[in-house]
Design a binder for these strands. Structure first.
Ligand SMILES: NC(=O)c1ccc[n+]([C@@H]2O[C@H](COP(=O)([O-])OP(=O)(O)OC[C@H]3O[C@@H](n4cnc5c(N)ncnc54)[C@H](O)[C@@H]3O)[C@@H](O)[C@H]2O)c1
Ligand SMILES: NC(=O)c1ccc[n+]([C@@H]2O[C@H](COP(=O)([O-])OP(=O)(O)OC[C@H]3O[C@@H](n4cnc5c(N)ncnc54)[C@H](O)[C@@H]3O)[C@@H](O)[C@H]2O)c1
Lengths: 212, 212
DNA sequence: CATTTTCTGTGAATGTTTTCACAGCGTTTG
DNA sequence: CAAACGCTGTGAAAACATTCACAGAAAATG
């Protein structure tokens, strides 16, 4: 019922609302939220429609109540347990970023093939062997994984995650993964993003730019 | 003339073509490329239209020539010089990932405020103080930057980048940046991506799911 | 050498997302 | 207390992106 981009914006709104709340703001208008989010007021109102919350014309949206409604719509649990597979350079950065420090997502298990890493606790998170994958994911009821293994290993590893019951994968490897329809895969492809930046950053002879 | 998503897919096609070429493949059909890219054949053909390349009905697209054409369309230079600002956990992972190892993008300068890092060479890349920003970017003709500083520093740092002549920013901080219209900003927001994954991974009572 | 096959390139149709524009309604103002 | 104001919620329009469907062409087939 809600598009992918609406989901993304809703999570952004919630983050912004959280900030506003910390600043003691109690009410906010669609155009203010829009400004903060880099969207239009109409867009914000549409997005908020889908969560089923209603503001008042007089005072706009109530910050706390709107956060609550967005949460009710987006979240299946107040805190999501996440697994990380591939504790390399990127994986360690992700651990440092999320473990302890994040209130919505908690990386509760890591996995790697490297025996220098398995069995140890890295950035506060235990690193398991892949053999333990099914067992640990089941025990902790983990449905979401971040995948940060080398590109050549990504598909095979994703398969194992799916077999272990994962239904959502955030994939950092620059590879398109195949997965059954009931599993959602989102790619974070830094190179592709950079290509877009490079394109738009132009130096581009875009239309009628000077040729010499 | 070309949409943002077309740009992204073109860069993906190029990567896939590169792989095909390494495997000795000389020709490829739209539906094969589509399969690899997770798109439809019609989509691939549309995308390729915008770069102005034409295949033949008999043998599809010539791998080398198509890569060439995509490059001509996307690239302003065969190798893009990129700056990295913020050499923390994520910054170091990015350095390790890109320095030397990538053929399209080269991180040629890093910047940080931490005096333990400035003046040193990290993962093969010299780390400068922010005071040197303008000078170094000008000398190396850098127009693109990756921004990996803490959220609270992101806007201020982005301003300095813009002043130093940067026209494209890949922003990893979970903050919406304001920038002049001629500067392109793309956000890589891991948290937002995770929220989307969590949503779609549903544990969600989506429509008519079992309730007990 | 006619026919069938299979592909590209693209106009048109369809589907999706964003924006417009305004009715309706509390609040403020004179 | 009536008028003016500024906001929300939302149908309808516009903009944008994807898919369909087929003409045209090169190769394979008989
Ligand atoms: N480092 C970055 O900033 C960055 C940026 C963009 C994309 N990526 C992508 O992210 C992925 C990881 O990057 P990285 O820099 O951390 O690489 P890395 O080589 O530092 O780490 C890879 C880790 O995965 C482990 N591994 C290998 N095979 C495995 C398997 N089958 N199962 C489990 N673990 C396995 C390795 O032991 C290692 O610890 C790569 O696909 C890379 O292309 C990284
Ligand atoms: N680590 C991750 O995996 C991850 C994931 C998602 C988002 N992020 C975001 O990326 C950014 C960086 O994350 P991190 O984990 O590397 O943080 P970090 O704290 O490890 O590193 C931040 C670095 O930026 C430097 N810095 C601080 N202020 C600066 C300034 N004004 N100019 C230049 N450099 C400055 C610090 O000295 C430090 O080296 C943060 O905004 C974070 O939210 C990180």
């Amino acid at each position: 019922m809600a598009s992918n981009q609406t989901i993304g914006r809703l999570s952004l709104y919630r983050r912004l609302l959280h900030g506003l709340q910390s600043d003691g703001v109690r009410n906010v208008y669609s155009h203010q939220l829009a400004r903060l989010a880099g969207a239009t007021a109409a867009q914000v109102r549409r997005d908020i429609m889908v969560v089923g919350y209603s503001g008042s014309a007089a005072h706009g949206y109530e910050v706390g109540a709107l956060m609550e409604s967005i949460g009710q719509f987006l979240d299946t649990a107040p805190v999501q347990r996440v697994a990380l597979v591939g504790v390399g350079n990127l994986g360690r950065a992700l651990l440092a970023h999320f473990v302890g420090r994040h209130h919505r997502f908690s990386i509760v298990a890591a996995f790697d093939v490297d025996t220098h890493k398995t069995g140890r606790v890295i950035h506060g998170c235990r690193c398991h062997t892949l053999a333990e994958l099914g067992e640990v994911l089941a025990a902790q009821e983990i449905r979401i994984a971040m995948l940060a293994v080398p590109p050549g290993e990504a598909q095979e590893t994703a398969n194992r995650l799916v077999d272990a019951g994962v239904t959502g994968i955030l994939n950092f490897a620059p590879v398109r993964l195949w997965a059954p329809r009931n599993v959602y895969v989102e790619d974070m492809d830094v190179t592709m993003a950079l290509e877009r930046v490079a394109y738009h950053a132009g130096n581009h002879v875009h239309e009628k730019e000077r040729v010499t």
